[in-house]
Write a protein that binds this DNA or RNA. Structure first.
Length: 668
RNA sequence: GCCAUCGUAGCUCAGUUGGCAGAGCAGCUGAUUUGUAAUCAGCAGGUCGGGGGAUCGAACCCCUCCGAUGGCUCCA
C-alpha cells in the first residue's frame, strides 16, 4: 500500500518544486528525516525526501485531517456561533468536535453541500508561521483553541496556523495543498462528547465523517460498512438462534441456547486439548468468595465499584469473582512446592462477573458475565522466557487454525515511569533500608516500616519482566509495537490483535507477567538450598473471552462457521412427505456418525424449507426424494449454494474428516 | 455513569393534527404432496417497557423508573 516516491531535494527550495505536474496531482506532503512537511515548505537540508502519495496510509490520514478542517470550515460558515475544538482521524474516518447547539444527521446534507462548495473553489490551504501572541489574538474568541495554543506553544515561540479561505486553524499540519484535493467524502454520524473527555466540562457535538481520494473507494468503504452492519453478531446470533438477552431480568447477561452452547463447548474443548498438549492442567474454581480475597489481591481497592459485592443477612461480605487468578492462587497455596515441580500451570474456562456500567455494554463483546480461557502459570524467574515463548507459539497456531490465515499483531504494554502511582512497584526506604511494595500517589508514599518519606523507586522487577517479554517476541521474530503506559497495575503484558474479514482489528490474547500477586498472597516455593523463593505468575488468555471470540467468529464468517463449530452440520429435508422415511433414515445415519443433523418434516415446499433453513447457516442442506431413495444417495447443497450428489457413506466420511481436521473449507 | 435516539404480537415493523390497536413472517388447524431462496385458506396471538400525571378521551402530550442502540468515559 506504500507507494510513496523518494526524490532528491535541495536545501533552500520548496518541496513542490521537485514535482512534475503529473506527480503534483497525487502527492500531498513530504517527509524528510522522519518529519512531515507541507509541499510549500522550504527544505532545510539537501538529500532524499519521501513524497507522500494521497493513497498511502499517511497520505489518507493527511487527506482525512484536511477533510476534518473542511468540515469545520463549513460548520462555522453555516453556524457562526459554533466553536471548533479539535479533530482526529483513525481507521478510515475522522471526527471534529464543536461547541455548538445540537444538530442532527438531518443537517448533514446542508453541511456536505457547503463542504462540496468550498472544495470546488479549490481554496489553497496555506501555512502561516506566527508568534504565540499573534496566534492567541487570532483565536481569542475560541477558548478551546487558546487552551491548545497555551499547551503547545511556549512563550516567544512561534507555531503554524493554516488559512483556508476565511477559515483559520491552529494546527501542526501537514495538509493537502488545496481544498480541491478533497473529492470524495461523507459525513457518517453524530454523537456527543465532553471537552477533554471530562463529563464536568462543556458538552460538545462530535461529527464523524470519512474521506477518500476518489468516489470509487468511498463507495467501496460505505458498502463495507453496510456489510459490517448486516454482519452484526447480535443479528446473526438471533438468526442462528445462538443466544438471548433477557433485558428485564438480567441485563448484560447472555443466555446460550442449545445451538450457542454447541459453539461455546466446541471452543472450550479445543482449548482443553491444546492446554493439555502445552502442560496446562484443568482446574475449577468457585464463582463466589468472601470479600477478603479481593482485598488481598488488590482488586477490591481498584475495582470495587465494578464488582458484584453483596452482604448476607448474617453480615458476611461476599463478592462474585471478577478475575480467576485468586482462585488459582488458592489452589497453588494448598501445598508446599518444590522448585522441581515448577512451572505449575492451571487453566480453566473461568467465568467472571463485572458490573459494566449501563452505557458500556454491547451484545457479546461487552457483557457483564463472560468466560475467559484463563490460565495462571507459577514460574521460577529462569522459566519466564521459555513459558512466554511457548504461549506466543500457541497464538498463531490457534487463530490460523480457526480463522484461516489471519493477520496477527502484537503489542507490548509497558509501564509509564513518569506515573509510578498507576502501578504496584517496589520502594527502598533511604532511612531504614527496608524494601516494600505499594501503589500510591507520591504525596501518600511513606515507608511501611519507619514512616519515612525519603524513598527510592525500584523498577528492577518491571524492567526484568519487560525484557523477558521483549526477548521472547524477538526470538520468535514477531514484530511488535510498544505501548508505554498501557501495562496492568501489576505488570507488563503482551496483547494480541487479529484482523477480521471486514478489516477490523480485535484484541484477543493477552500474556501478562505479574511479580506482585505472589507478594500480595505471600507465595513461595522451596529452592535447591531449602530457601523460600517467590514465584512469578504469568496470566494468559488466548481466545480472550468466549463471548467476545464467538462474536468475532460470527462476524468474521458471517455466521457460516467451519463445520466443527457449526451448531447444525446437516439439515435433511425430504422433497415431500412420501420421502420422510428415507429422510429420517439419513438423519439417523448422520447422527450415529456424530454429525449434528436436523430434520425438517414440515409440509412446506422444498423451496420454502430452504428459504427458512438458510438463516440457520447449516454447513450442508441435504435434499432427498425419489432419486436419492432409489440409489441410496443424498443431494447435498453447500454454503455457496452449489449441489452435489453423494452416497451416504461418502458424505459421512468426507464431512467427518472435515470436522476432525477443523477444516475451514467445505468438502466441495 | 454522561449525551443523543429508541421501546407496539414470538420476530420484523406500520399506526396521520390525541378519537374503536394493524400488517408480514413464525405458530396452530385444514387443503395441497411438492426437486433446491416464501402453495392456498382459516384460527389464535397485545395491560402499546413499568409507574405516575394533565385531558371527556393517550401507543401518541408531560414527569419518573427500567431497558436497548450509537457515541463519550471506563474495560483488571
Amino acid at each position: 500500500m506504500n507507494s510513496n516516491i523518494i526524490l532528491k531535494v535541495e536545501k533552500g527550495r520548496k518541496y513542490s518544486e521537485f514535482l512534475d505536474n503529473n506527480l503534483k496531482r497525487n502527492i500531498v506532503a513530504c517527509k524528510q528525516k522522519g518529519i512531515l512537511h507541507d509541499l510549500l515548505d522550504v527544505c532545510d537540508a539537501s538529500g532524499d525526501a519521501e513524497f507522500i502519495e494521497i493513497t498511502s496510509e499517511e497520505g489518507l490520514k493527511i487527506l482525512r485531517h484536511s477533510t476534518a478542517h473542511l468540515l469545520a470550515n463549513a460548520v462555522v460558515e453555516l453556524y457562526p456561533d459554533a466553536k471548533p475544538n479539535t479533530s482526529n482521524e483513525d481507521n478510515n474516518t475522522f471526527y471534529y468536535d464543536f461547541d455548538m447547539n445540537p444538530i442532527s444527521i438531518d443537517d448533514f446534507p446542508a453541511i456536505e453541500k457547503k463542504m462540496e462548495e468550498i472544495a470546488k473553489r479549490n481554496e489553497p490551504i496555506e501555512k502561516m508561521v506566527l508568534d504565540k501572541n499573534s496566534i492567541l489574538e487570532l483565536f481569542k474568541n475560541n477558548p478551546y483553541k487558546t487552551d491548545k495554543i497555551n499547551e503547545n506553544v511556549r512563550e516567544n515561540e512561534s507555531s503554524s496556523v493554516y488559512k483556508e479561505g476565511n477559515y483559520m486553524e491552529f494546527c501542526r499540519g501537514p495538509h493537502v495543498p488545496s481544498t480541491g484535493f478533497i473529492k470524495a467524502f461523507k459525513l457518517l454520524s453524530i454523537s456527543s462528547t465532553n471537552y477533554e473527555g471530562d463529563i464536568n466540562k462543556q458538552k460538545m457535538v462530535r461529527i464523524y465523517g470519512t474521506s477518500f481520494p476518489d468516489k470509487k473507494s468511498l463507495k467501496e468503504f460505505l458498502l463495507r460498512k453496510e456489510e459490517a452492519m448486516k454482519r452484526d453478531h447480535r443479528r446473526i446470533g438471533h438468526e442462528m438462534d445462538l443466544f438471548i438477552f433477557d433485558n428485564e431480568r438480567a441485563p448484560g447477561f447472555p443466555f446460550y441456547t442449545p445451538n450457542g452452547a454447541i459453539i461455546r463447548n466446541e471452543l472450550i474443548n479445543y482449548m482443553k486439548e491444546l492446554n493439555e498438549k502445552n502442560g496446562w492442567e484443568d482446574v475449577w474454581t468457585p464463582h463466589v468468595y468472601k470479600e477478603i480475597i479481593w482485598r488481598e489481591s488488590g482488586h477490591y481497592d481498584k475495582y470495587k465499584n465494578d464488582m458484584f459485592l453483596f452482604q448476607l443477612s448474617n453480615g458476611d461480605h461476599y463478592g462474585l469473582k471478577p478475575m480467576n487468578c485468586p482462585g488459582h492462587i488458592a489452589i497453588f497455596q494448598r501445598d508446599v512446592h518444590s522448585y522441581r515441580e515448577m512451572p505449575i500451570r492451571y487453566s480453566e474456562a473461568g467465568t467472571v462477573y463485572r458490573y459494566e456500567k449501563s452505557g458500556e455494554m454491547g451484545g457479546l463483546t461487552r457483557p457483564r458475565v463472560f468466560t475467559i480461557d484463563d490460565g495462571h502459570g507459577f514460574l521460577r524467574a529462569d522459566q519466564i522466557s521459555e513459558e512466554v515463548t511457548s504461549l506466543l507459539k500457541m497464538v498463531p497456531f490457534i487463530f490460523n487454525t480457526i480463522m484461516g490465515d489471519s493477520e496477527i499483531s502484537y503489542d507490548l504494554s509497558t509501564m509509564d515511569k513518569s506515573h509510578p502511582e498507576n502501578y504496584l512497584i517496589s520502594y527502598m526506604c533511604l532511612e531504614c533500608n527496608q524494601k516494600f511494595e505499594m501503589r500510591a500517589a507520591s504525596d501518600e508514599l511513606k515507608c511501611q516500616n519507619c514512616g519515612s518519606t525519603s524513598l527510592k523507586e525500584d523498577f528492577s522487577m518491571w524492567d526484568n519482566a519487560t525484557e523477558n517479554l521483549k526477548s521472547a517476541l524477538n526470538n520468535l521474530g514477531l514484530p511488535y509495537k510498544e505501548n508505554p503506559g498501557d501495562a496492568a497495575f501489576y505488570g507488563p503484558k503482551v496483547d494480541v490483535h487479529i484482523r477480521d474479514a471486514l478489516d477490523r482489528l480485535w484484541q484477543v490474547s493477552t500474556i501478562q507477567l505479574d511479580f506482585f500477586m505472589p507478594i500480595n498472597f505471600d507465595l513461595n516455593y522451596i529452592d535447591a538450598d531449602g530457601q523460600k523463593i517467590r514465584p512469578v505468575i504469568i496470566h494468559r488468555a488466548i481466545y480472550g473471552s468466549y463471548e467476545r471470540f464467538i462474536a468475532i467468529l460470527l462476524e468474521h464468517f458471517n455466521g457460516k462457521l467451519p463445520a466443527w463449530l457449526s451448531p447444525v452440520q446437516a439439515y435433511v429435508i425430504p422433497v415431500s412427505e412420501n420421502y420422510s422415511g428415507y429422510a429420517e433414515y439419513v438423519h439417523r445415519e448422520l447422527g450415529k456418525n456424530h454429525i449434528r443433523s436436523r430434520l425438517d418434516l414440515s409440509q412446506n415446499t422444498i423451496s420454502k424449507k430452504i428459504k427458512l433453513i438458510r438463516s440457520m447457516r447449516p454447513s450442508y442442506i441435504i435434499v432427498v426424494g425419489e432419486n436419492e431413495k432409489n440409489n441410496g444417495t443424498i443431494s447435498v447443497r453447500n454454503r455457496s449454494d452449489r449441489t452435489k450428489t453423494y452416497t451416504i457413506n461418502d458424505f459421512i466420511n468426507n464431512v467427518d474428516k472435515e470436522i476432525r481436521s477443523h477444516n475451514i473449507k467445505q468438502i466441495f
